[in-house]
Amino acid sequence: MEVFFLGNVKFRFETELVLDIEKVTVSSGEVVLLTGANGSGKTTLLRVMAGLLTPEDGVIKYKSEPIIFGKAGLEHRRRVTLLAQEPYLFRGNVLLNVSYGPRARGMSKSQANELAEEAILNTRCEGLIDRDAAKLSGGEKKRVALARALAAGAETLLLDEPISHLDEENSKLIVEIIKELAASGITLVVSTHIPEWASSLSLKNVRLAYGKVV
């Protein structure tokens, strides 16, 4: 089943056309790798797919329905979650951060904490649960942000450069978690400018250059 359909999508920063996508599709349970050099439009494309940026032109459908952008697109934002390249962790401890998504969906504190704890275990963050989010290392922050995105319960995860700026150990951990996610059947769109690490994943590769699919 096709989850994402993008056709003739254009996005402009001020006057510069930074995204000009003729066609990209993503099927349910598929792992799509977005590759391309820095500045090729990967982040912009992911933010458009997440409903955070409104394109100036084109069609973007999620499960055959045109997506609604910005604040009005709550339903879409609850189905598709973006993990930013440099994720922001809210003030407070790790559990508070990871339980944010379930709480945003109106779950009780105990239900939200249960989901959060499960996501924390899946991302090997169990030792961090009570830690102050502001005092985590870069790798720990990324894993906690991944746990938070997982706990939110989205159908599709958009991961923007998940292993950038990480040491070898943290990169390995994140790759391992992504492989487990892929095996679990969740739809993943992962951007990277170093695609080698993803070679063992069975995936579709979409290569971008100057905002276009090449």
Partner: peptide, 15 residues
């Protein structure tokens, strides 16, 4: 930080 708003939005927060 500008990322606060975007993070909340992408985690499914209402306005």
């Amino acid at each position: 930080d500008g990322r606060v708003r975007e993070t909340a939005l992408t985690l499914g927060a209402s306005n």
